[in-house]
Design a protein around this nucleic acid. Structure first.
Lengths: 189, 189
DNA sequence: GTATAAAACTAACAATCGTTAGTTTTGTTA
DNA sequence: TAACAAAACTAACGATTGTTAGTTTTATAC
């Protein structure tokens, strides 16, 4: 449908602006200017500013949830599962780095049902991640330093990829995955 | 001075609100309500909303800059310098986790001189960090995976500490430092 | 070329924003 | 208790916010 594509253009433009200044600081007039139209014209394609935000965030969150569910239900080793998670984050980041800024920084501006839905997905994601690490420790695949710190540090890095990746030039996804796995799992010393 | 202390109360309350919703989404009336007074009364103690933000951010940025300068000019090994940087981040985070949310997420709402000043401090900080890693690779103290990825992943984790630390209960700073050094430098496998 | 739908426009709304001016209350010191 | 300063208040301002209503332009199909 044509309206779908025009809506997507608006959502994409919004994601870029949200990344630069955050959801609350971007006005509908800012967004309209970026699209080359007037603010009121946006409402031929979207229902509200809030709808733009939830479109950006929920879609990405479901992508992560779906990817994580596949990894969890696979019969790979814990280390391989962690590698798959790293790969998942890189894939999503390459595809939609702008949107990830909103997911990371503006999720709290979601309203009601979408906020609850997002928070549940994020909680489940972290729980799955933690369980994989825990299993890895039990199986002696992972050094049992501090599980919480491993989960936190790995997830912090993966969640910040959206900021770092666009600054790298011509970086190959597969090389990036290898290097990231090496640094995050084998360490630097 | 008494006014100084009342101003600091306002700044501290603002930091908590900024952490929850971001600078742009927090109104002066929100802040006044949190302080138990009316919005106009805030202006007996502060000059503007912007002044609150710059007070929070610039002070923290200068703390990091000062700490980094000391580490750079010390004659320790690269690994020891990295350990000192980890320690610096943990110290600052324990002292002012709320303010770090603004530093990480709302620095772009600084105006003019303060924005330029902040951006320079951040750039210098990253450059110093990168130089330390580079030296470590040259001296064979650090595996030469990908220097940029090492800088990025380590800094990502340290910058996200402000979100993670408050959720941990009764965590000892020194144990945290040891564990963090272990995970970030020795890896998890 | 006329009809229809998509997508832009102008104009304006009620609400809320940061902030100011002027006034009153509170607390301290002589 | 008189004097003074600190810190609160009420009331309001001009600007900006997201959004709506109604209208006009643009593109597509017959």
């Amino acid at each position: 449908m044509k309206q779908e594509s025009r809506k997507q253009e608006i959502v994409n433009a919004a994601a870029i602006l949200f990344k630069e200044k955050g959801y609350s600081a971007v006005t509908m007039r800012d967004l309209a200017t970026a699209m080359g139209i007037k603010a009121a014209s946006l409402y031929n394609h979207i229902q509200s500013k809030q709808e733009i935000l939830s479109t950006i965030i929920i879609e990405l969150a479901e992508e992560f949830t779906s990817g994580m569910n596949q990894i969890v239900s696979s019969d790979r080793s814990s280390i391989q599962k962690l590698e798959n998670i790293i790969s998942l984050h890189i894939d999503v980041t390459l595809r939609n780095a702008d949107g990830l800024a909103s997911l990371n920084n503006d999720w709290m501006h979601l309203e009601e049902d979408n906020l609850l839905y997002f928070e549940k997905m994020r909680q489940d994601y972290e729980d799955n991640f933690r369980q994989i690490v825990k299993k890895g420790v039990d199986m002696n695949e992972i050094k049992s330093n501090n599980i919480e710190i491993i989960v936190f540090s790995t997830l912090s890095t993966l969640r910040t990829l959206y900021l770092w990746y666009p600054k790298q030039k011509n970086i190959d996804a597969n090389i990036l995955k290898k290097d990231m796995i090496s640094v995050l799992l084998q360490g630097v010393v």
